[in-house]
Amino acid sequence: MIDKNLSLRNRRKLLLGLFDDEDKMVAATSALVHEGVKIQDVYTPYPVHGLDRIIGARRSWLSIVAFLCGLTGFSLAYLMIWYMYVYDWPMDIGNKPERLTPSWVPILFESTVLLTAFGMAFFFFWRSRLVHGIKPELLDPRQTDDLMIICVESGHDVNESQVLDIMKQNGAAELRTRDGGVSTVI
């Protein structure tokens, strides 16, 4: 369930390009993808629109999960009102009908919203590996401030010098490698 792409643990050598400009980072990412390099992740301090499509991330399932949670919320609320109000102890209040009436709508609606919001949020936390108190896998403390980092995992099919060259040509402020948790500036 957890997105396996996210963790940096048990990775081979990582090639890092540090950028301080959004345009240069996007250009470098596009160039790398164009050359067929698989990008592990790009870390940015703010959302850069369209970057997920450039690195080939699949569209999230969140909207489907949201819909399913909403259905669950609606059904549970319906079941609750039906059980309490129609089945277990029918109440005659002002001779109003007891079966599904407009007066059920507010509670059905609120329960649908409540379960959708929380169900979706839990799915988001789970899938994105967001857990209270865990140690963040930071590549640089400035990645949540003003630095953008392109991260490529080394392997047989990766030409390391070509990757570093592309990053440099597109204006990387700094190049690093990271092996076994130790970063080396190139």
């Binding site: 997105d3 792409n5 996210l6 992740d41 790009v42 870390y43 940015t44 301090p45 959302p47 850069v48 629109h49 970057l51 997920d52 690195i55 991330a57 999230s60 969140l62 909207s63 949201a66 919203v113 959708t116 919001a117 979706m120 949020a121 988001f124 936390f125 899938r127 994105s128 590996r129 967001l130 857990v131 209270h132 108190g133 865990i134 140690k135 963040p136 896998e137 930071l138 590549l139 990645q143 949540t144």
Partner: peptide, 28 residues
Amino acid sequence: YRFFSMGWTGGTRTWARYELISLILAGL
């Protein structure tokens, strides 16, 4: 701050999901 930041590092996939959840929450 570490406790409440939930290990956030700003990866692109997480940002994409974050943007989507913000949009759906806004719609709700």
